[in-house]
Lab assay of single mutants.
Amino acid sequence: HAATELTPEQAAALKPYDRIVITGRFNAIGDAVSAVSRRADEEGAASFYVVDTSEFGNSGNWRVVADVYKA
């Protein structure tokens, strides 16, 4: 099962156990969220919340930071 994305309210009520950072070329924010979901799932997380997204220069590469939560 894939890790689910939390709302800001849900994330605020929970304590993350880790923070992950992924970088890559994403065509849309949805693609980045899917990549975070896969990584969170690999780490055994039940859910995640994207904290920050930023573009690296003009290369089209993105850096996505997310907190991950157990259950």
Rank of each mutant, 00 (worst) to 15 (best):
H1G: 14
H1V: 10
H1C: 14
A2E: 10
A2T: 13
A3P: 13
A3T: 06
T4E: 09
E5K: 07
E5I: 08
L6S: 01
T7L: 07
T7H: 04
T7Y: 04
P8W: 14
P8T: 14
E9I: 08
Q10R: 07
Q10I: 06
Q10W: 06
Q10N: 04
Q10V: 08
A11P: 02
A12Y: 07
A12K: 12
A12I: 09
A12G: 07
A13W: 12
L14V: 05
L14P: 02
L14H: 09
L14W: 07
L14K: 09
K15M: 11
P16N: 03
Y17K: 01
Y17D: 03
Y17S: 04
Y17G: 01
Y17W: 07
D18E: 08
D18Q: 13
R19N: 00
R19C: 08
R19I: 07
I20Q: 00
I20P: 00
I20V: 06
V21C: 12
V21Y: 09
V21F: 07
I22P: 00
I22D: 01
I22H: 01
I22G: 00
T23H: 10
T23W: 12
T23F: 14
T23K: 06
T23R: 06
G24E: 01
G24Y: 04
R25I: 12
R25L: 10
R25V: 10
F26G: 02
F26V: 02
F26N: 01
F26I: 02
N27T: 11
N27R: 09
A28D: 15
I29R: 13
I29V: 12
G30N: 10
G30M: 10
G30W: 12
G30A: 14
A32D: 02
A32Y: 05
A32M: 14
A32E: 01
S34T: 12
S34G: 11
S34K: 14
S34H: 13
S34P: 02
S34D: 14
S34Y: 13
A35F: 07
A35S: 05
A35R: 01
V36L: 10
V36I: 12
S37K: 15
S37F: 07
S37Q: 15
R38F: 09
R39G: 02
R39F: 10
R39C: 10
R39V: 11
R39T: 05
A40P: 04
A40F: 03
A40I: 05
D41I: 13
E42V: 07
E42A: 12
E42R: 09
E42N: 06
E43K: 10
E43V: 15
E43C: 13
G44W: 04
G44N: 06
G44Q: 04
G44V: 04
A45Q: 02
A45F: 15
A46R: 08
A46P: 05
S47C: 14
S47F: 15
S47H: 15
S47V: 04
S47R: 04
F48A: 00
F48M: 03
Y49F: 14
Y49S: 04
V50P: 02
V50M: 07
V50A: 00
V51L: 07
V51Y: 04
D52H: 13
D52W: 11
T53K: 09
T53G: 06
T53M: 15
T53C: 15
T53A: 15
T53V: 15
T53S: 12
S54L: 12
S54I: 14
E55Q: 13
F56V: 12
G57H: 08
G57N: 09
N58V: 11
N58D: 13
N58F: 10
N58P: 13
N58E: 14
S59R: 07
S59P: 11
S59K: 08
S59I: 09
G60R: 05
G60W: 05
G60Q: 06
G60I: 04
G60A: 05
N61P: 05
N61V: 15
W62F: 11
R63C: 12
R63Y: 11
R63K: 10
R63E: 08
R63H: 08
V64A: 01
V64F: 03
V64S: 00
V64Q: 00
V65K: 01
V65R: 02
A66E: 02
A66Y: 05
A66V: 13
A66N: 01
D67Y: 14
V68T: 02
V68I: 15
K70C: 10
K70S: 08
K70D: 06
K70R: 11
A71Q: 13
A71P: 11
A71L: 11
